[in-house]
Nucleic acid binder design. Structure first.
Lengths: 212, 212
DNA sequence: TAGATTGTTAATCGATTAACAATC
DNA sequence: TAGATTGTTAATCGATTAACAATC
């Protein structure tokens, strides 16, 4: 499947995981074929948008038939790189880091958690969900030796900037950041931020303005 | 400050917490006044957008001077309802629920965590970060008695739909959902989803397409 | 007053929706 | 073949950016 020359808008990329989720649910229910119209009703978007979105990547349907669910899942999975077995590490084995390490459902879908790091020597050497906790000082060598793709940062705000710099220097390819602070890394290293406070604030606004 | 009659776009609301964060940082550095232009450089957005955004709420600046940082923080805080002392509960005291309960920085900013619930009787009655863990069966009475605003759901996928229904019935006003499943609640109850798998997928795509 | 910077209108850009010819 | 539904172009809508008059 050749990519169109048109650049895929960010907003389309953000929708792909949601399509992926719904399509897998369909397949679970043994629904093997679906039209953009039927899918649009389930997902509460327009059929037009679905067809436009898929056509950024070349069109996966067939006129008069619709889309083959299994095929579509495979294609979207490939677009998202879910079959590449991206390797992840968690940095910061505090409450949140440990929770994420234990939460297998966050971690599956083709992503492999291969290391956890902390600067507290009392827990270095222990194991969380079968994964060894290593010392912060080993990060560089580990990332390079294992070609780590993604680092999940669950560090205090004060530590996160230095850590991001270290990671960029040793070749990390992407960062999922849970610290309440925006990272200043080169454009070439994509960052996704999970700012829970921001989400609470947005929620608060929406609650407050419910009846205006 | 009177609201304009124009409806505030969702995308503007989503930006408010980020403004709030940056402005607080400025105040920390004892910067008491800033122009849209200076702020735009720090935040990597256009000055035009900043002025447009603020003017949805009536305009907080002064020609020839710029914006008073402290005043702006207060106004945005009010818009977001951060001074309303919204009350929250966490439902599901597994790894993630406990991590969130312990993570005071997620919880501050005017949001009050007043209860944790779980269906495992072995932990009911214990305490996490000074907050009592109660039984699932007490949720309805607790929400009603305490006027709980927000429920944070850290439940298994299978349990989350029923729970959302129970919460809506007893008058919850908003939901922050960590389960990998979309909730089907009335429009009147805003939901924010934290879908970590989706974020990893987006990150994966961006890594994969870095050099195209 | 002169300079700076907002508030606001107008122009541009991009994303969503509608429409329909192509085609399975 | 007739019916269905895509792929794709055109129309609409909304959000961002530019420009500048108002004003501190």
């Amino acid at each position: 499947m050749e990519l169109n020359d048109k650049k895929v808008p960010e907003v389309v990329i953000k929708r792909l995981p949601r399509y992926y989720r719904y399509l897998r649910e369909l397949l679970n229910q043994d629904i093997r074929r679906i039209s953009s119209n039927a899918l649009s009703k389930k997902m509460n978007v327009t059929a037009s948008q679905i067809r436009q979105d898929f056509n950024y990547f070349g069109g996966f349907g067939q006129q008069g038939y619709g889309y083959n669910v299994e095929h579509l899942i495979t294609e979207i999975g490939n677009i998202l790189g879910l079959n590449d077995g991206e390797k992840m590490i968690i940095i910061g084995a505090g409450n949140l880091g440990r929770a994420l390490a234990n939460h297998n459902s966050f971690i599956k879908r083709g992503f492999k958690l291969i290391g956890i790091f902390d600067n507290d020597n009392r827990i270095v050497g222990s194991s969380i969900n079968g994964i060894r906790v290593m010392s912060d000082s080993e990060i560089e060598s580990f990332v390079q030796a294992n070609n780590v793709d993604i680092a999940i940062l669950t560090l205090p705000r004060s530590a996160v900037h230095d850590m991001a710099n270290r990671l960029v220097k040793c070749g990390i390819r992407g960062i999922l950041n849970f610290s309440y602070s925006e990272l200043d890394v080169p454009e070439s290293v994509p960052v996704e931020n999970v700012h829970l406070s921001d989400m609470l604030m947005t929620l608060s606004y929406r609650i407050k303005n419910q009846k205006d």
